[in-house]
Design a protein around this nucleic acid. Structure first.
Length: 689
DNA sequence: GGGCCCGCAGGG
DNA sequence: CCCTGCGGGCCC
């Protein structure tokens, strides 16, 4: 990297490094890319208009082709100088008036990510080989300048050097304002470089795929950042969809035992946090946003630490929901032996242990508890109507007790009162909750083990600030943050490399190459002047319907009449009438899609090959086992069964249900038979692999 | 709509 | 490692 160009320097801690004066806020111009502040008067070239000022990029970030700065690469670190084409492309993009800022940003990112991943002579298979071969070098170039590891949350300085967000923040907190690598000035804070995130993820996957060539699939630790954004199925999962899915990436940086709302500071990618009223299709997604970590269990917590969240989804019929307050039933007391996961029938008393104790602890301490309502709760008027789970905000447990439930067994009961700064999803109020008096609870009369908070609550209303906040410091986290980079963080999930790579690639194809009308992968793609992609047929179809308008005649009949001036892009309403007259397939895009699909097919083949090997091995093991069993049988009862009717054969083919049922019956006496059966099956699978 | 079954996650 | 869990898909 060359010497610093001293004729252009930004402000350091509010003081201009050129004139050593502290400019007023009006005189400071932030860079559109790195957000570093610059003194307008000291700039050699100043923006002329307000619009230019808004889009202004500092000399460090602006792609100045004739200076050393041209080597600055937004993706970072490579500085190979061969990016003239890229700069020209970005300039052309910026000049394109038909694009919105958002589209420009997206395209810019796409360009940069391609550059990050592909060698400069991006010619098909050859470059692919180079990429795999040079993957280590590529990954090395992404490394954090300070810790020399691959950044967990990468940020890139204007001078093009990469850091982990943690390392960078720590470095800046020491008062340092020069890049640790090249001593160029650096801004006090940086945003996550999403392009680099994707590049690292992609390179990681490629690396693993290369390393895994011809090898047997193994269970390995799957780090958070390597997971797809959506829930995915591991090798073992047999059913489609999310029935047996593994969790996708966790998006927030809260610890697993984080109490209270999830605010913007824990949401580095969107900087928004999780707002009240946010919905998800599945509990798994709710988990990914850190609101409720358990996928099945209704209470998330630790008996010695407290409970962080609960879900109301109708699992216990004793629940009583009044919106701003509700009575929640503890967990347990049901027979879940065998392979049952849910069962409405109670068979024993609930105790204040495990999760029930965690809730009681939150009650005693006055901790904030996040509450999620599911559409599955049918008896509550406050449950969401659509098939979703919804985050309803913070509640506090005011009392808990035990009483006889409707099924005759004792259940733990908790009185939850809402105490959130945002209004509930069902209320027309614009403000959050104010402290409210406790409701009269009839059932407290016959209740036992009543617990009420003695001291003041940790989460309480501040009359001066007029909001709910931590009056006492929140409990210290005892569990790690996902994605923090500790080795033991990854969860052991058995996934073949090709399989994992395919999942991520499918996601990417859907995101990048999906038609905005049919939401499937583009076929014969056309790109509108406003840069939106559609299948040719979809676009034609959309306007075939719009060309005519239904109109009532004076006789009251409907007739079709051509409609003018509605030839607008279905997405952004730009007039595309001219474009529609001569629809041309975007061949570049088509080639890119074909490329991706070819890769996908290769991966599928790879996967199948792996599966065949696995099946063969499994067969061999099965045969071995069968022989030994047969031998054993023969030694006990030498009379072999020679004939089987088709019916009998069928019965033998699907024995699981009956056998499982008998296990369950046994479990009524001794709850271990079914579990043991399941474990032995599991361990057998492990052996097979 | 209910029962059954499954894999996953997490506490202890 | 064992146990538990207010999910979700599929079949009946």
């Amino acid at each position: 990297m060359a010497d610093v160009d001293v004729s252009v320097l930004p402000c350091n801690d509010g003081i201009c490094m050129m004139c050593n004066q502290m400019p007023s806020p009006e005189e400071i111009l932030p860079c559109n890319t790195c957000t570093s502040p610059w003194h307008v008067s000291c700039l050699s070239v100043r923006p002329d208009t307000v619009a230019e000022a808004l889009d202004w990029e500092c000399p460090d970030c602006a792609p100045a082709a004739d200076s050393e700065q041209a080597a600055v690469n937004p993706v970072g670190g490579r500085g190979d100088g061969g990016d003239d084409g890229l700069i020209a492309a970005i300039k052309a993009l910026e000049a394109d008036e038909s694009l919105t800022e958002r589209e420009k940003a997206r395209k810019r990112q796409a360009l940069m990510s391609k550059t990050a991943l592909l060698p400069s002579d991006s010619d098909g298979a050859d470059s692919e080989k180079k990429m795999n071969g040079g993957n280590d070098a590529l990954l090395r170039s992404f490394c954090c300048t300070i810790c020399m590891h691959l950044p967990e949350r990468p940020v890139t300085t204007p001078c093009g050097h990469n850091f982990c967000l943690k390392c960078y923040d720590r470095y800046v907190a020491q008062g340092k304002r020069q890049c640790a690598n090249c001593r160029q000035p650096i801004p006090p804070s940086l945003r996550i470089n999403e392009v680099l995130v994707r590049a690292i993820r992609r390179a990681n996957v490629d690396k693993r795929a290369t390393a895994g060539d011809g090898q047997r699939p193994v269970a390995h630790y799957l780090h958070n950042q390597d997971r797809p954004d959506k829930a995915f199925r591991s090798e073992r999962a047999k059913k489609a969809g999310n029935a047996n899915a593994s969790s996708g990436r966790i998006f927030v940086t809260t610890a697993k035992d984080h109490f209270g709302p999830i605010t913007a500071e824990y949401d580095p990618e969107r900087n928004e946090g999780v707002l009240v009223g946010r919905t998800w299709q599945y509990r798994m997604e709710c988990r990914q946003w850190g609101i409720h970590r358990s996928v099945v269990a209704g209470i998330s917590g630790q008996c010695r630490h407290g409970a962080q969240s609960v879900v109301l989804s109708g699992g216990y019929e004793d629940d009583e929901d009044h919106g701003e307050w509700f009575i929640y039933t503890g967990s347990g007391g049901k027979d879940l032996s065998g392979n049952k996961r849910t069962n409405k029938e109670h068979s024993k008393d609930q105790e204040f242990t495990h999760m029930n104790e965690a809730l009681r602890l939150s009650c005693r301490m006055g901790y904030p508890v996040r509450v999620v309502r599911s559409h599955k709760e049918k008896r509550s008027s406050y449950a969401p109507r659509e098939a979703v789970v919804r985050y309803d905000g913070i509640y506090r447990i005011e009392k808990c007790w035990r009483k006889k439930g409707t099924q005759g067994f004792k259940v733990c009961r908790y009185l939850f009162m809402r105490c959130d700064n945002e209004p509930a999803p069902w209320t027309c109020d614009v403000h959050g909750d104010r402290p409210r008096p406790l409701p009269f609870i009839k059932e407290l009369k016959g209740a036992t083990d009543i617990t009420e908070r003695k001291g003041s609550p940790s989460w309480d209303y501040d009359e001066e600030k007029e909001c709910w906040l931590w009056k006492k410091p929140p409990p210290l986290s005892k569990q790690p943050v996902e994605d923090s980079g500790d080795a033991e963080e990854g969860k052991k999930v058995k996934v073949k490399r090709a399989y994992m790579q395919r999942q991520i690639m499918e996601e990417e194809i859907q995101r990048e190459f999906g038609c905005h009308i049919c939401h499937k992968v583009l076929t014969s793609p056309v790109t509108t002047p406003c840069a939106h992609n559609f299948c040719k047929a979809c676009l034609e179809g959309a306007f075939a319907g719009l060309t005519y308008i239904k109109e009532r005649t004076c006789h009251g009949r409907r007739t079709l009449r051509p409609q003018k001036n509605v030839m607008n892009c279905p997405l952004c309403s730009t007039d595309i009438a001219e474009f529609l007259q001569n629809l041309k397939v975007n061949t570049d895009l088509m080639n890119a899609i074909e490329d991706m699909q070819q890769k996908l097919e290769d991966l599928e083949e790879e996967e199948e090959a792996e599966k065949e090997v696995e099946d063969q091995e499994q067969e061999e093991i099965d045969n071995d086992g069968k022989e030994t069993v047969d031998e054993a049988k023969e030694s006990i009862s030498p009379a072999p069964q020679t004939e089987t009717t088709p019916q009998e054969a069928c019965e033998q083919k699907k024995p699981t249900r009956k056998r499982k049922k008998s296990n369950n019956a046994e479990n009524a006496v001794d709850g271990h038979a079914g579990v043991t059966a399941r474990r032995s099956k599991k361990s057998k699978m492990a052996v097979a692999v």
